[in-house]
Design a protein around this nucleic acid. Structure first.
Lengths: 259, 259
DNA sequence: CCAAAAGTGTTACTCTTACACCCATGT
DNA sequence: ACATGGGTGTAAGAGTAACACTTTTGG
């Protein structure tokens, strides 16, 4: 098989890219602190046809010589400057109809979580704006459906308790964790039973410290125990808590590479 | 952006292909009817470098103008002549290290189930041979890991009861269904409790007929009720019972196309 | 009558749910 | 002292697991 053949086959193939649905916890109302939270996600405004001017998921090209996760991480970083604590493959979309008008496109979509601290209060910068997950604008391509799938996946994965941890931060009170669960599922959840179930799971560790909020009794601060009894999930590549050393983005990326 | 640019970007991208892990129920022992079953899967012998001569998952190129599911279905059909009743996307693998020695390769892997009737008693034809899922030979690339993931996925999806149905056929007795569960999980399962749980689920419908096997009491024959209360799975494209009209393969494919 | 598989009953136990209640703290 | 969230108690009910038991068939 000559080089010419290989080139021809490659030319016959669709373009490949990566996109990322990133979720973060944010305030509920535009009005003010209503106590409860909901999920927000950042979208970028397209600067090319098709769908120029419309909102779309952050994404980019596949980087040759890098894993898919690295490509997704890099794409996300270069468009939004976010460094997710959790990044997992969601699905690959490749229907010819999805790129209405454009070139055929296969998108490998990742799903990410960032803590509230990362989000810099949801202000719009450049062409990136945060939207509440239940009040999305019109979106380019099939991105609305992709987001709905990501939200569904986040709900079904919530039973693995470390997922909630990624949204709430390293240390948290049981009320905060409870708040995350309600934000993700959209359902009210009995706090008393939630507390018992979480503590019984053995995954929470008391830090010894307490946290005050208002004029009320201080709450115990917990930490998630990453150790021990491996979870029941299959070990596929996923970015979990990349140790970011002092902000340089290449460091964050290199931390993702095996070996 | 001129055409030249587009070509260049495409050339920088890895090759894309589809692969399929197909599972079927088969006999347990080489010796003979030991009553119980286990999972089998077909592999094809590679006729190209790298890994020439090694066993690998069936697969093929992406077909332009066709959906990913269609490409997977076609690839499977042309290599093994199987027509899965269930075909669902599993995962996309794209690590540069996986194509050791070859060109960089992104594989969109699908996961399929076929009934025992489809398999023509597991005889080796051409370069296709069936292997028990727990006695695999050495495999090309990272295909062993991919199969392990598919097996894990089949176990975790078994709670959706229609999965078992795809392996056992349209109509079945509760013992047969029980046998599938034990084959997939590898665990023994109390038949009495299994029976009650299945019947209580409301998904099984009595056909009114009975089936005799040996010198024993005849068993009620059930059918899976596909109707009604939508399952809790997210509706992504998946091939479910493509109505094959009299064997011509193009018909099977066209049945997969939307609208 | 007997073996073998189909199918039912029963009991103990765990897990879930709903909700009443007490506790510690800042104002 | 009292409002506010933090945290515990408890009892009813659903679901699970283990295993003894009865039923229907062919030989």
């Amino acid at each position: 098989m000559g080089i010419g053949n290989v080139s021809e086959r490659r030319l016959a193939q669709p373009q490949i890219g990566v996109s990322v649905v990133i979720l973060a916890l944010g305030p509920h109302g535009d009005s003010e602190a209503s106590g409860h939270s909901r999920l927000w996600l950042p979208l970028v405004r397209r600067v090319k046809q098709p769908f120029m001017g419309a909102w779309a998921l952050p994404g980019g090209d596949l980087r040759v010589g890098h894993s898919l996760e690295e490509s997704a991480f890099k794409a996300l970083e270069s468009t939004t400057e976010l460094h997710p604590k959790y990044l997992e493959q969601l699905y690959t979309f490749g229907d010819p109809a999805r790129s209405s008008g454009g070139l055929p496109m296969v998108s490998i979509v990742y799903w990410a979580l960032v803590g509230e601290a990362e989000t810099k209060d949801f202000a719009e910068v450049d062409n990136v704006r945060w939207f509440p997950a239940d009040e999305l604008p019109d979106l380019a391509f099939d991105h609305r459906r992709i987001i709905e799938y990501a939200l569904w996946r986040s709900r079904s994965k919530l039973e693995y308790p470390d997922i909630a941890t990624k949204l709430v931060g390293e240390e948290f009170t049981l009320s905060q964790l409870h708040d995350v669960y309600e934000a993700v599922t959209g359902q009210p959840l009995d706090l008393a039973n939630f507390r018992r179930k979480m503590l019984a799971s053995g995954h929470l560790e008391d830090t010894g410290r307490k946290r005050h909020v208002g004029r009320s009794r201080p709450a115990t601060v917990y930490r998630y125990r990453h150790d021990g009894t491996a979870n029941e999930d299959f070990p596929l590549p996923a970015v979990v808590n990349p140790p970011r050393s002092a902000g340089r983005s290449d460091d964050a990326l290199s931390a993702l590479m095996p070996s």
